[in-house]
Amino acid sequence: MAKPKLKEHRINREWCKGCGICVAFCPKNVLELDEKDKAVAVRPEDCIACRLCELRCPDLAIEIIVEDEHGIENKIRSGQ
């Protein structure tokens, strides 16, 4: 199976409480907290779509949207 390619980090700013868990545990250092303490993807080009931020977010505020090889938006789910 081809590696999933990131399309976007969908971050719900209303739900994010700025705990920094996603920032600390991102293996590629993609995320940071902005001046309002909300998570933002500052280096999306480095993202490997491992979805650890999405899985660890206590506020359920992050969603990783990937593209499949045909460029169609596809939400991958763990184990599939």
């Binding site: 739900w15 705990c19 899985l55 660890r56």
Partner: peptide, 30 residues
């Protein structure tokens, strides 16, 4: 989608920033 399992009207939830209970909720839904 994850949101289809949630009662979105109660979000953001009451737990403190960084509370592990949110992670349990996240994993439970998955």
């Amino acid at each position: 989608a994850v949101k289809d399992y949630l009662r979105e009207r109660f979000f953001p939830h009451i737990w403190c920033a960084g509370c592990g209970h949110g992670i349990v909720l996240n994993s439970l839904i998955r």
